[in-house]
Nucleic acid binder design. Structure first.
Lengths: 128, 128
DNA sequence: TTGATACACATACATATGTAGTAGTATTAA
DNA sequence: TTAATACTACTACATATGTATGTGTATCAA
C-alpha cells in the first residue's frame, strides 16, 4: 500500500508507463529524447528497482523481453511528492502557493479551478 | 548565486538559522526536539557541508565555538524547492494545486490571497 | 594549574540514486 | 544452421546524504 518514495528517474519512468501503457525496457528507453537518453542498462536497473519497490511488475513476455506494467497509481505517487514538499514547509500551503505564483506557472484559471474544487470538498465534508 | 540543492536535513538547519539568527553548532543541535535529536557531530557534518555549498558561513567565535550565519536566502532556497517539484510535473501547477487541496492544507483564504497576488503580478507585468 | 568538558576536524560507513559495463542466453534473419 | 543481435541478470562505481566515531585541542571551573 504505502508506496515508497520514488526518485526523479524512477518517476520519469513511471510517467512513461502511466501514459503509454505496458512497455518493455527498450521501449521505455526509446521514449527518452535521442539527445540525453540514458543507456539501456540504466533504464533496466531503474526498472528493476521499481520492481523491488513494488511499483511495477512483469505481466508477460514478448520474445524474451519482459513487458512491465505500472502497479503504483499515478495519483498516489504524485500525492506523495506534494506531501513530501509540504512537510518541508511544515504543512503550510501558503508559501508553496506564493512560489507557484512567482514561478509564473499558476494561472487565474488554475486558481478558479482550485477554488471550485475546494468548495466542493468543503461541501462533501459538511454533509458527512 | 545559484544556490545548490539542499537536502532535507540541510534545509531543517537553514530554517533554524533563518528563524533564530546566528548560532553555534551546539545551539542548532539543541533546537531539535529532545526526542529524535541528531548527534552533535551529525549537525556538525551537515553544517560543514552547508558551508561547502556556500549556504552558511562563520561570522565569529565565542570561546572556541564558531558561530554560523545563513548566507543563502530563505526565499531563494524555498523557491528552488518548489521549482524542483514543479519540474516533476512538467511545469504544470494545476496538479500540484489539486494535491494541495486534497491534502486539506489549502484554505479558501490561501486561495483568495493567491488570487490577489496573482492579479497584482499580472498588473505589474501589464504596466511593464 | 590541572582535570573535566566542549569543540574542531578528519574519517568512516550504510543507503539511495544515477550511471553503465559484462557475461551469458535467447531470438531471429540470412 | 549459424552468425548477428537483443535481452536478462549481475556487478560495479561515483556522488549525495544521514549518521556517527575518534583524536586532539581549547576552555573553564575548582
Amino acid at each position: 500500500m504505502t508506496l515508497p518514495r520514488l526518485s526523479k528517474l524512477e518517476l520519469r519512468i513511471m510517467r512513461i508507463l502511466w501514459k503509454q501503457g505496458d512497455l518493455s525496457i527498450r521501449e521505455v528507453q526509446e521514449t527518452f529524447p535521442r539527445r540525453n537518453r540514458p543507456a539501456y542498462t540504466t533504464i533496466q536497473t531503474t526498472i528493476y528497482r521499481l520492481e523491488g519497490k513494488g511499483a511495477v511488475e512483469r505481466i508477460r513476455k514478448i520474445g524474451n523481453a519482459h513487458i512491465f506494467t505500472a502497479v503504483a497509481s499515478r495519483s498516489e505517487a504524485e500525492r506523495r511528492l506534494v506531501d513530501d514538499l509540504l512537510s518541508l514547509f511544515d504543512g503550510h500551503s501558503q508559501p508553496v502557493m506564493s512560489y507557484l505564483i512567482e514561478s509564473g506557472s499558476l494561472t487565474l484559471d488554475d486558481i478558479k479551478e482550485a477554488e471550485a474544487a475546494l468548495r466542493k470538498a468543503a461541501e462533501r465534508k459538511a454533509r458527512k
